[in-house]
């Protein structure tokens, strides 16, 4: 479980995050949603430690990441997996080498065992046969799946995904969403997904935090979204005709 307590972040005079309090539960797909520029990427970076909050606490199973020394932070980071918006695969390495990389760095297994584990992770994301390809030779969807395989190679307790569906077609996005959801449930991970893809929200949103202008505006799940009376949330979620019609149909049912 990851908990945020009174989290603030400012860049010089500009306050980007204001008093964020939220709980992200274990074994659930937790979503951070919000418009572009609302501060959700900054929030994610504060949670994973790429930025340091101006004030507040980021608790990993009760341990405050902000107060930890470098050594403790490194140890926590080895329990994290992250899928970046751009996949962030190492482009000089093959698919297999990318997945083996965290194992090469931190695992004491021998070469054969590390390779076996990497191949298992690739099979888990349905990427058997692409082991020797370079990231530039595979599609965006496949790159995201390699990123997922790399993120789960060390069996992390915490999985972070920064706009994992960005640049993908709706069908591939669904595959990625389902994969992240299945892996989260299977390994009982605390997963936080940063997204503004409404299909993801409606598909895998078990715990949703809506950020509006750097503040937590609403928290609930995908079913509660349908009945929410929060105007800002509704204008964001139901901005498209399709979702407006879905809501109306739900209301009429």
């Amino acid at each position: 479980m990851i908990e945020l307590r009174n989290l603030y972040k400012s860049f010089e005079d500009k306050e980007v995050l204001h008093d964020i309090n939220a709980v992200f539960e274990e074994g659930k797909t937790n979503l951070i949603i919000g418009q572009s520029g609302s501060g959700k990427t900054v929030l994610m970076k504060n949670i994973v430690g790429l930025l340091t909050p101006t004030r507040g606490q980021v608790l990993y199973d009760g341990r405050d990441f902000v107060q930890m020394n470098k050594r403790e932070q490194v140890l926590i980071r080895r329990e994290m997996g992250m899928i970046f918006q751009s996949a962030a695969l190492f482009d000089s390495m093959s698919v297999l080498e990318n997945v083996m990389f965290p194992l090469d760095m931190f695992s004491d297994q021998n070469q054969a065992d590390r390779e076996r584990r990497a191949r298992f992770c690739l099979e888990r994301v349905n990427l058997k046969g692409a082991e020797n390809k370079l990231p530039g030779e595979i599609s965006g969807g496949m790159q995201k799946r390699v990123a997922i395989a790399r993120a789960i190679a060390l069996n992390p307790k915490y999985l972070f995904c920064d706009e994992p569906n960005s640049g993908l077609d709706p069908k591939t996005s669904l595959v990625i969403d389902d994969l992240i959801h299945d892996i989260t449930t299977e390994y009982r991970m605390t997963t936080i997904i940063n997204t503004h893809d409404m299909n993801s929200v409606m598909g895998i949103g078990e715990n949703i935090v809506y950020i509006y202008q750097g503040q937590k505006e609403w928290q609930g799940n995908k079913d509660q979204i349908m009945t929410s009376t929060n105007e800002r949330l509704n204008s964001f979620i139901f901005a498209s005709d399709l979702f407006r019609k879905v809501k109306e149909a739900n209301g009429n049912a």
């Binding site: 994973v48 430690g49 790429l50 932070q73 490194v74 140890l75 926590i76 980071r77 080895r78 994290m80 992250m82 970046f84 918006q85 751009s86 962030a88 695969l89 190492f90 482009d91 965290p102 760095m105 931190f106 972070f160």
Partner: peptide, 16 residues
């Protein structure tokens, strides 16, 4: 290029 494509962030997240 590693910086702008977040590959360096990926290393940092791994605790490297």
């Amino acid at each position: 290029t590693m910086r702008v494509t977040q590959q360096i962030d990926a290393l940092e997240i791994m605790g490297i």
